[in-house]
């Protein structure tokens, strides 16, 4: 699933390559020059206090937020280039939201087939087959006829993951996927994400789940005040933080 994509000069391009990214809302600067990359097949977790800009960084990767300056390359493609087919790039980046954002007027199965049909142009039978395969992956095969309002938060989030997977994305973005869930439902969602990681999916995960970051992540990035303060192997960053701001944050959440 993780195809090796070559950059313009023939070198393997990272799946996500962010360079000198700035983002401001009016005079308020949320991102103050971020350099960040995710290699194909890597799981990178981003942690930090609320307001640190970690969700904004993630949302800049598929241009749900418009970068103010800097570059965002996805598989070597500049997503801010006016010649880039943004919809095509987005269809290869799965995204999972904190608030699930399932389509409430559609059944679970239709939630999974809509974009397959309109974007991928798949036939109905093919789309349904892909949808059922992915519902099985998240353990919700029996819910295909249900409507989102009748599912628990954890079930909704797993459907949202299955919806993103049904597009056969090259990578997945997770924006605090368990923050809106009741504590007893968090485990099911994390288990699905862990399964994805072991299958080799490229993942960028903004999260507060330190256990997940330590166990599953290849790299941990700590952000604060719109900059990357510290990054490295999760065990090292969590176990032996170098920066004083990282130490202060971790002492509060661990």
């Amino acid at each position: 699933m993780t195809a090796t994509v070559l950059g313009p000069n023939g070198e393997p391009a990272p799946a996500i390559d962010v360079r000198g990214l700035h983002k401001s809302y009016g005079h308020h600067e949320v991102l103050k020059g971020i350099d960040f990359f995710v290699d194909a097949g890597q799981v990178v977790c981003v942690i930090g206090p609320s307001g640190s800009g970690k969700s904004t960084l993630l949302r800049c990767v598929n241009r749900l937020e418009e970068p103010t300056s800097g570059k965002v390359l996805v598989e070597g493609i500049d997503i801010c280039d006016p010649d880039t087919d943004l919809d095509d790039v987005r269809s290869r980046i799965g995204m999972v939201f904190q608030q699930f954002n399932l389509f409430p007027h559609l059944s679970v199965l239709k939630n999974l087939t809509l974009a397959q049909r309109t974007v991928r142009g798949r036939s109905k039978d093919e789309a349904v087959e892909v949808a059922r395969h992915n519902l099985a992956r998240v353990g919700l095969s029996d819910k295909e006829a249900a409507y989102p309002a009748h599912l628990s938060g954890g079930q909704q989030q797993r459907v949202a993951i299955a919806r993103a997977l049904s597009m056969n994305p090259d990578m997945m973005l997770f924006d605090e996927p368990t923050s809106a869930l009741d504590p007893e439902l968090v485990g099911d969602v994390l288990a699905v994400m862990k399964e994805l990681a072991t299958e080799g999916m490229t993942m960028m995960v903004v999260t507060h789940e330190m256990g997940f970051a330590r166990e599953v992540g290849d790299k941990l990035v700590f952000m604060d005040g719109g900059v990357v303060v510290e990054e490295g192997r999760p065990a090292e960053v969590l176990g032996n933080p170098q920066h004083q701001r990282t130490q202060a944050f971790l002492s509060k959440v661990l």
Binding site: R90, S91, M95, M167
Partner: peptide, 21 residues
């Protein structure tokens, strides 16, 4: 909710499909 549009766009749906569907 704005999240509905964001979810559709993040799946690669264009603005017309997002609006009508």
């Amino acid at each position: 909710p704005k999240g509905q549009t964001e979810a559709a766009r993040s799946l690669g749906m264009g603005s017309i499909a997002t609006t009508t569907r």
